[in-house]
Design a protein around this nucleic acid. Structure first.
Lengths: 230, 230
DNA sequence: CCTACCGATCGGTAGG
DNA sequence: CCTACCGATCGGTAGG
């Protein structure tokens, strides 16, 4: 998969920098975790390298050992999230189920991925202007492929009489708004649990295309431990 | 209306600066037009005052004569757009139509306003981190009131058996995503005319809440002359 | 209404 | 001798 290859191109440190030992990877991930939260809260220009370092309790050369520059950090985050969200409409070649069943599963996965990665996926939209043009083009390409897959499944299901909607493109974009805009209002500690939110949003998407099916049980990958544990 | 009052507080120059003559207002508007396009394309931090001045063919003191600082420009733009989009669910006290008819009209107006102001409304979402906290709070308050009105109309219509949806808040937020996310994909010179886009998006919103009504003829206020003229 | 210029702060990197 | 890291400071540019 060329798509899977490209994550390494962005996310893997160059040979002359941090090696890929378990310790280095862990430190690298810690930087990413802190940066993700700061970028989400204060935006890309509003987050200084000094702030990231302060939050980590380290100095700048520490961070610059693991990342070439500030852009490599935000691009790694945005790329991971985009990859997680925008490959959910791909199915193996030997998957011969009818289109509307694949679509139902894909939409469910899409929503779940967007809920899980809502912080980082916000980056892909909000900091667009701060991203390098080449990287923006890659994100656009990823999104383009996703909407092509989504539109194809929608059209095929519609031809088979399983869906009802007016305009494929506008409806697909409208669905993109439903999940893509979530970062403006979603609060992980809010009224709904991640799984409940996924379920309700998936139901909404189904309704938008006239898909009559019950969403399967949601499965989100929450990094933080659940509140029920405390 | 306290809401209408507040536009002056933000948009009107202070007394010790530019007077409100027709010429001054026109110059001010020209700055806003140029800035809106640049902010939309390059973001708030990515748009330098030098760039705005270069685009206008003036020097910085010219711009600083009409605006106190960079923030006043972006806040004027964001406030106008937000006001236009987020007061569409308000109706006169003597409007005694059933809730679902008001809702249909309100949704239509909302979509039309978002299409018309898509550049500036993008600011309200994308440059959030760059806005002054007090101004962000005012935008949030405006949005809060809007969703309160929207939710009330939705609930009332639902009680009267005119609508079908699962969760009021999630559905309202999902609709917000449909129109709010438009700035990421809408191209004014694209396949659909503004009116066609408004019509299709309104249809999508109606479908999300099970509202069975035909959207009225769209009316968008496009500032640029239509292509059909050329 | 312009030229010239400031205080402050940014991302990134030198030597040790 | 290498890695991982520190204190100090660089050049360049932002808003004003």
């Amino acid at each position: 998969m060329s798509v899977i290859d490209s994550i390494d191109r962005v996310a893997t440190p160059a040979a002359n920098r941090a090696p890929e030992t378990a310790v280095c990877i862990a430190k690298r991930e810690r930087i990413l975790t802190v940066a993700e939260d700061l970028f989400y809260r204060y935006g890309f220009p509003g987050t200084t390298m000094d702030r990231i370092c302060a939050e980590l309790g380290v100095t700048k050369p520490y961070v610059y050992y693991y990342f070439r520059d500030k852009h490599e950090i935000v691009e790694t985050l945005a790329w991971r999230a985009s990859l997680a969200c925008l490959t959910t409409m791909k199915f193996p070649a030997d998957d011969t189920r009818p289109a509307h069943l694949k679509l139902a599963e894909g939409l469910q996965r899409w929503v779940a991925a967007c809920v899980t990665h809502f912080r980082a996926s916000a980056l892909a939209f909000r900091v667009t202007a701060s991203l390098r043009p080449e990287f923006r083009a890659e994100l656009r390409s990823l999104a383009h492929d996703f909407y092509a897959d989504l539109g194809a499944l929608m059209d095929e299901s519609k031809e088979q009489g399983k869906l009802s909607f007016e305009d494929t493109t506008v409806t697909a974009m409208a669905m993109g708004g439903v999940v893509g805009f979530m970062y403006t209002w979603y609060q992980p500690e809010g009224r709904l649990s991640p799984d409940e939110l996924v379920s309700r949003l998936t139901t909404t998407l189904f309704k938008m295309i006239g898909l009559r099916a019950t969403p399967a049980r949601a499965r989100t990958t929450t990094k933080k431990p659940n509140k029920a544990h405390g």
